[in-house]
């Protein structure tokens, strides 16, 4: 009886719904139902962009010059804002145990969860950035550079944040520690992101291509680091 087909997991491999697609849809659905994930980042972004002119003063030329840097700092902080819950919710309610007993590698699960998180938090920031750029007095001709740099750079920020989220998964208030752990790693992304967004001397192409390279490296490497941290944290 032990060879019963019912108990052979190989048999059920055909024609079953793809686990990673199911995970992506689940996370997007949760984000939409709970709400707040999208609006929180954008509103935080808006707050930073709104108060900066009050702090810097009404010098429009200065604002236009530092505008791309302000947008990038705001995007970085807004990205960090919700990241501590990326894996913590799943660890608390037992979903992480399901991930660990599935046939899908934990690395891919982390990658897909990061993608869902970026679609919910990073993409709205990118979409809102032209309006906020105008608020800072950027010339309309410069806006495509800002949008392109944020579009390519924010996924790297989310992926780096996933490492921090995995390391702080069992800490009750891990948000601040996550920021401290991740900010040094995010500095290269910030440097080349701001350069691609608005540096008049080095131009657009070189920093933009380096930014693309950083993001691709983050896609390739950070899931392994985050999964290793999660496995270690299970101990």
């Amino acid at each position: 009886m032990s060879q019963s087909p019912q108990l052979n997991p190989q048999d059920s491999r055909k024609a079953r719904p793809a686990p990673l697609r199911a995970l992506l849809l689940r996370d997007l659905r949760i984000g939409r139902r709970i709400g707040g994930a999208v609006s929180m980042g954008v509103v935080f972004f808006l707050c930073l962009v709104t108060i900066t002119p009050f702090a810097v003063g009404p010098d429009q030329a200065l604002l236009a010059r530092i505008g791309p840097a302000i947008l990038w700092i705001a995007a970085l902080l807004a990205t960090l804002l919700g990241l501590d819950r990326l894996l913590q919710a799943d660890a608390e309610d037992g979903s992480l145990d399901l991930f660990l007993t599935s046939e899908t590698p934990l690395e891919l699960i982390v990658l897909v969860k990061s993608l869902a998180h970026w679609l919910l938090t990073g993409l709205p920031l990118v979409a809102a950035s032209p309006i906020f750029g105008l608020m800072l007095g950027l010339a309309p001709a410069e806006l495509p550079r800002v949008v392109a740099s944020l579009l390519v750079g924010t996924p790297a920020l989310t992926l780096l944040g996933a490492i921090g989220a995995a390391l702080t998964v069992s800490l009750r208030r891990g948000g601040l520690l996550l920021a401290v752990l991740i900010l040094p790693l995010a500095v290269p992304v910030l440097i080349f992101g701001v350069a691609a967004a608005g540096d008049p001397i080095v131009g657009f192409k070189t920093p933009f291509l380096i930014l693309c390279g950083l993001t691709l490296a983050a896609v390739a490497l950070t899931p392994f680091a985050a999964a290793a941290a999660l496995r270690h944290g299970a101990e």
Partner: peptide
């Protein structure tokens, strides 16, 4: 936030059933 059937459909998809 998910309905019971959504929860179960997800765990089934993840675990391969």
């Amino acid at each position: 936030a998910l309905s019971l059937i959504e929860n179960l459909a997800f765990s089934a998809a993840l675990l391969g059933g």
